[in-house]
């Protein structure tokens, strides 16, 4: 990525999401929470999930981290609303898989697709995966 491409990426995609993150607020009450923490760099978020009859009705998040981790979690929260836990598991699985493997994968959601195209962003892939990994691990470890 050239400097110009980096600037374009941040200007057009990352900073708008970072400056106006989706559902970025602390909740006093939620059906359950998931911690997303990277001990190497200190990025730390709490994800708040609200459910109704097994469906995820809304997802909020709050915490501190870089523009990339925050933008990525913002996009993730939005994409996970109104899904069943099973669908969330497969969505996060697919995302991590897409980030980890060599050839590119398509995602219908434009913003998720944009994130997936950043899988060669040196040193920053962990920032992008942070929230997704946390959700994946959470749902893998609970009985659905």
């Amino acid at each position: 990525m050239t400097k110009q491409e980096l600037q374009q990426l941040f200007k057009n995609e990352i900073l708008p999401e970072n400056d106006n993150p989706y559902h970025f607020q602390e909740l006093q009450r939620a059906s359950f929470t998931v911690e997303a923490y990277n001990s190497m760099c200190g990025d730390k978020y709490t994800l708040y999930f609200n459910t109704n009859e097994g469906q995820i009705t809304s997802v909020y998040f709050y915490g501190f981290g870089c523009a990339l981790s925050k933008a990525s979690i913002s996009i993730m929260c939005k994409s996970m609303e109104h899904l069943s836990p099973n669908n969330i598991t497969s969505l996060s699985d697919q995302f991590i898989f897409a980030m980890d493997q060599e050839h590119s994968t398509e995602n219908a959601d434009k913003k998720i697709q944009m994130l997936q195209q950043l899988k060669h962003f040196d040193g920053r892939v962990d920032c992008i995966k942070l929230g997704w990994e946390a959700v994946k691990n959470h749902f893998e470890n609970v009985d659905l």
Partner: peptide
Amino acid sequence: NIHPHDIASFLNKDDIALRAGM
């Protein structure tokens, strides 16, 4: 308002190697 990681990514494009994190 700029996280150290983002500082490091941008300075990297100016060929400056610095550290970000804990």
